[in-house]
Design a protein around this nucleic acid. Structure first.
Lengths: 200, 200
DNA sequence: TACTTTTGTTAACACTGTTAACTAAAATGT
DNA sequence: ACATTTTAGTTAACAGTGTTAACAAAAGTA
């Protein structure tokens, strides 16, 4: 009964070729512009065959999301294993996480559902400067009353905004409803830690 | 020559009605499913009239993005004005930012290009647990060698991941190319601050 | 009233995801 | 080896999407 095995193997190969073609598309033009038709075109088959292997387009993207998380987990584990002291591991993991995100940008954006408003678009929203202006000035003023008055206010502002945005978006990804009391404690923890790090 | 003025006024009203119809759509089904046709349908005009007032769909979304940033700026300014001490202002702004994000979820998602992988989708990615597992265990171990051993490891993990994700996504929004040395300093600043907050 | 400009419409183009209906090939049972 | 069933792959369509060219109707101007 080698026929059945060959069929399974062929099906597996077919599935892999779909994923490969899809990934080339993602690398070329980003996952936003991935289309079933382009995949079908690349593998030189008609469109509906793809639906024999994946329920829908979402399932293909989900596959990459899984792949991405697995790759990231492997990377972090490897980095962790290079150190013994927990605090050092924590630091190394953080840097590895950062590096992974930019080395595998497409994976990362897919994993966390980042639409990414084009950089020129963002920079041309004058209204954004109204917000950042308030934050930066407050950071500056805080540094002025702090212990180390020569802290880099732009660096601190960037950290501040990043922390806030990270908290919000992770929270939004995690649950659909309104944030709980526990979520707010995470916010308090992060914010108080950040402010303390300025005031020293 | 009141005619020209009336025309301008009518044009402005028309524009506003487009935005209103669009916003109702966004509120109802999220900005992902906003369509020109639905807007045209809502205002009971044909499709191309919309293109007399907005260059394309992107321009409509950009309008809301601007609105969102302005609303947020106003909110933050108002909150800031309620306090005098900079550190307190910084804290209040952070909470106001958080509240704004969830009170105006649609604005926030638009402003920062959040695609938001559906919460059930995310929770069913087993591979994600491989990653979070590594982080959580390392956090636990770090707490064990820290000064206050009764810290909430889940809270700290949540903070840790949020900080990292925030740093990455703000960086990705800001620039298209690879991160610079300065970006890495922001990362270092945030990470070292976080680890210090665990070790006390 | 005749002419010009503005306003809005219809119809189409070029895409997208998805699926029903059908054909050709391969595997199976007799 | 032949008939039958199962599988693989096709074409063609449906229901959407953003966008635009060509045209008709209304409004303003001379």
């Amino acid at each position: 009964m080698g026929i059945a095995e060959r069929k399974i193997r062929q099906k597996e190969e077919f599935r892999a070729s779909i994923l490969e073609a899809a990934w080339l598309q993602v690398l070329a033009d980003g996952w936003q512009s991935l289309s079933i038709r382009k995949i079908a075109d690349a593998i030189e088959y008609s469109i509906p065959v793809i639906y024999n292997h994946f329920e829908n387009k979402e399932a293909i993207l989900l596959e990459f999301t899984k792949e991405g998380f697995q790759k990231l987990a492997d990377t972090l584990q490897a980095v962790k294993d290079q150190h013994t002291e927990p605090a050092v591991q924590l630091e190394a993991i953080a840097y590895a996480y950062w590096d992974f995100a930019f080395e595998h940008k497409e994976y990362y954006q897919l994993m966390f559902g980042l639409g990414i408003p084009a950089c020129d678009r963002v920079n041309q929203i004058a209204e954004m400067k109204n917000m950042t202006g308030i934050m930066i000035s407050t950071i500056k003023e805080t540094i002025l009353v702090s212990a180390n008055k020569d802290a880099d206010h732009f660096l601190k502002y960037h950290t501040y905004l990043s922390v806030l945005h990270g908290l919000v978006s992770i929270q939004m990804i995690r649950k659909d409803g309104p944030p709980t009391e526990e979520n707010r404690r995470v916010l308090q923890d992060a914010v108080s830690g950040f402010i303390k790090s300025i005031l020293v």
